[in-house]
């Protein structure tokens, strides 16, 4: 029975892994590998050319650098803000905290078009229009971070706080010395999610960054439906996140992942 379930699990995992493997493989072929696998008559040749052509595209490389700049800056701001926000949501006993949590959740559900015009107006009022800082700030204060941080902090039993209080009066010290080490694995996951969000931004930079030289690569790659089979670009664009995931995975044990 165990063997059967193991086989089922392997098949399921292969199903999840297959698209990533196909994408990676397709990026190393001239011609469309996917069409070939579908049975269409297509010229196919293994080649690095998709990558070499891409590295000749100076505009794409500049925008990739912008993506890295925006994503990393957002992360640096967003992590501490998320932790502090999560702390407030988890430990505050004031009335209305539940409402704030609900609001955070609701805002996660709304598409960005709902607030696109007001956000544009505010960026102009604050003279942040056409600056990457506008994008970074909007993303740094995204509701996702505090919500996930709240879930992480909530999972830590109250007894841990109380026990630490016996030895130390300072809440800050308790938080840094006793609570943070327990949060670290969850924070690694939070880092990944926040980076992925910032990496995937489309509408926010479209509206707030009219200067194409400041825009991230997600906008350029967004026009996938032109049918140009941008597998190499897709793989390259996924690499930083995969790298970050690899680093996180190496430092993280499987039992550390506990965000519920």
């Amino acid at each position: 029975m165990k063997k059967i379930t193991a086989c089922v699990l392997v098949v399921l995992l292969l199903t999840f892994a297959l698209p990533m493997l196909m994408l990676f493989a397709a990026s190393f072929f001239q011609g469309d590998l996917i069409s070939f696998l579908k049975g269409e008559t297509v010229f196919l040749q293994a080649s690095w050319q998709r990558y070499t052509i891409m590295f000749d595209n100076e505009e794409l490389l500049i925008q990739l650098m912008n993506s890295i700049k925006i994503a990393l800056s957002t992360l640096i701001l967003q992590l501490p803000l998320s932790v502090l926000g999560g702390l407030f949501l988890a430990r505050s006993s004031i009335k209305g905290v539940g409402l704030i949590r609900v609001l955070l959740l609701l805002l996660l559900l709304l598409p960005f078009q709902s607030i696109m015009v007001p956000v544009f107006k505010m960026s102009r009022w604050l003279n942040l229009y056409d600056t990457q800082l506008a994008v970074i700030l909007m993303q740094a204060f995204s509701p996702l971070g505090p919500l996930i941080a709240w879930l992480l902090i909530r999972a830590i039993p109250g007894e841990h706080w109380e026990a630490a209080l016996l030895d130390c009066k300072s809440q800050l010290t308790i938080f840094c010395r006793a609570i943070m080490p327990q949060l670290l694995p969850g924070l690694a996951v939070l880092t990944l999610l926040c980076f992925a969000e910032a990496w995937n931004l489309v509408e926010l930079p479209l509206i707030l960054l009219p200067d194409t030289e400041l825009r991230p690569a997600s906008l350029m790659l967004n026009d996938i439906r032109s049918g140009s089979n941008q597998y190499a670009e897709a793989v390259l664009y996924a690499l930083p996140i995969l790298l970050l995931y690899g680093i996180t995975g190496i430092t993280l044990k499987k039992e550390d992942i506990s965000i519920v």
């Binding site: 999840f16 698209p19 069409s35 990944l192 790659l221 089979n229 793989v235 664009y237 996924a238 996140i241």
Partner: peptide, 21 residues
């Protein structure tokens, strides 16, 4: 867990390039 979590992190544009094919 690595295989299951990775798709969440793969950018949409990357995944869609495959799906549309």
């Amino acid at each position: 867990m690595a295989v299951l979590l990775l798709p969440l992190l793969i950018p949409s544009v990357s995944a869609v390039s495959l799906w549309s094919a």
